[in-house]
Amino acid sequence: MATGSGAAAAAADAEEKESGSRMITLTSNEGKAFVVTEASARQSATIRSMVDDGGCVDKGFPLPNVDSKTLARVIQYCDEHGNKEAHTVDERAALAKFDKDFIAELDADKAFLYDVTMAANYLHIQGLFALTTQCIADTIKGKTPEEIRTAFGIEYDLTAQDEEEIKEEDTHA
């Protein structure tokens, strides 16, 4: 065993760990600060580009569109996906299970699901956005218009003329 190369590898390892574990502060619109690893923060394309542009890593990033409760939940997702490896079958399965539980919990609280979807969109967290929109999509699949209106809280505002058109299209088809 060559001690020299071993030491170098260890150093490189440490350096990588260093940059991976560099901490970043995210501030919610209520002024609450959340300290996360850079790997976790980089799940967000918005923050990633700010970091890469040499932005104010030390000063932290204010997120005026995200409240504390939502940010905490979003960070939970980013930590899992940013800090953990997903190379082996098992690791990927663990991550998939995390996603499943994560979204099932959100699905039980539709108001919160809404907030997290908006935050994922704003922060450009692709995986999380896909997860939440898929979840909402699943809730409207195969439902009647009336059921979708209820599920989405949509106010019925079609005019009599619109209804007439729709009926006509129906009979065509």
Binding site: K110, T117, M118, T133, A137, K141, I148, A151
Partner: peptide, 28 residues
Amino acid sequence: DQGRFDQLPDDILLSILERVDMRTVLRT
């Protein structure tokens, strides 16, 4: 509970619609 999904912006609603089949899309 009911959602407030109707308040989502168009682009998000569109990415939701892209995840369902065409018959559901037409129904919406």
